[in-house]
């Protein structure tokens, strides 16, 4: 820090926009597509790519509000458990309370939002650090899912319910429309609204944001609630796709979600990040999984790669950041 900043004459070897995280990532993504396509003829087919979109929706829906949360310098580790809890309550309220399925879906979305709201309330009112609060509810929500379901699964939903998870709409997987709408809305909110600017302000300097009169606590409450709601939505899509509910659903989602967000250039320290970055990050993670699967690597080994990608991308991002700051 004590070093004198480099004078303007220091030569830039590469233009600045090439060094932007999203650009680099998009280039890597293209290269990966070409290499994987060359390795396996089944990879670069429209069918396969659309199917990958189907599979990424559940994680993608959660990654959008997670981008908001990480931009504010927070984190939500409980999302996977909320998916489990909502999935269980969807099945349980339908089967055991006799709710009509549409009502059961609303109920599970409501529970997701409530679970997120509880995170938000304790984080903003009691000032429990988000990391700790969501580790606690990671245990609590998964525990409720296990306790309520008693490890029993629910299946046999009506046929129409499988539409969102398994059918196509205008030739594109139905749930992908949901994700696309969510992406566009999130991008507009983050980029073009006061709400979005507030998120960056909180992430850059929360105290300053507070003293500038920004509604810091209300904004945080909203994004954690949103995170829970989207996890609930993700649970409904997941149940519709796999046709059953089990209490272990969504285990490990927090890894995929956080890896996609961080890989997409959102700084884990807050203040920096875009929805487009997250979208490219999501695509990278899903292609990685698919590419590895096609080359015969088993599912368990792919999480090794995702874990390594998470650590390495944070390393690269933070060293780039340090260079930009002239340290």
């Amino acid at each position: 820090m004590s070093e004198i900043p480099l004078p303007q004459t220091a030569k830039r070897v590469v233009p600045w926009w090439l060094l932007r995280h999203e650009t680099m990532l998009a280039v890597i993504l293209l290269l990966a597509l070409i290499v994987l396509g060359g390795l396996n003829s089944r990879f670069l087919t429209l069918d396969n790519l659309l199917n990958q979109g189907r599979l990424t929706t559940e994680v993608g829906l959660i990654a959008l509000p997670m981008t908001f949360i990480i931009i504010t310098g927070g984190i939500d580790l409980s999302v996977g458990s909320i998916v489990g809890l909502c999935a269980i309550l969807l099945g349980y309220s339908w089967k055991n309370f006799g709710f009509p399925l549409p009502l059961a879906i609303c109920f599970s979305l409501l529970v997701g939002a409530a679970a997120g709201l509880l995170n938000g309330i304790v984080i903003t009112r009691v000032k429990v650090p988000p990391l700790i609060m969501t580790i606690a509810t990671l245990a609590l929500y998964r525990g409720l899912a296990e306790g309520i379901s008693q490890a029993r699964s629910v299946r046999g939903y009506p046929e129409w319910f499988y539409f969102i998870g398994q059918e196509n709409l205008f030739g594109v997987p139905a749930q992908l429309w949901l994700l696309l709408i969510a992406i566009v809305v999130s991008a507009i909110v983050l980029d073009r609204t006061t709400f979005g600017r507030t998120l960056y302000a909180i992430g850059n300097n929360e105290t300053a944001a507070r003293f500038s009169g920004l509604p810091v606590d209300r904004v945080k409450l909203i994004i954690y609630t949103l995170s829970g709601l989207m996890a609930g939505l993700s649970a409904c899509v997941l149940v519709s796709r796999v046709t059953t509910t089990r209490s272990d659903m969504g285990i490990g989602y927090e890894l995929d979600v956080i890896a996609a967000v961080v890989l997409g250039g959102t700084s884990i320290f807050g203040g920096v990040g875009t929805i487009w970055g997250t979208v490219v990050g999501l695509a990278m993670i899903q292609l990685l999984k698919n590419g590895l699967a096609l080359t015969g690597v088993k599912g368990d080994a792919t999480i090794v790669v995702i874990g390594a990608v998470l650590i390495l991308s944070t390393l690269v991002a933070s060293s780039l950041q340090r260079r930009r700051d002239g340290v």
Binding site: A139, G143, E146, Q150
Partner: peptide, 8 residues
């Protein structure tokens, strides 16, 4: 099965 909830 309730133990995890108790822990939380």
């Amino acid at each position: 099965y309730w133990i995890r909830a108790v822990q939380g």
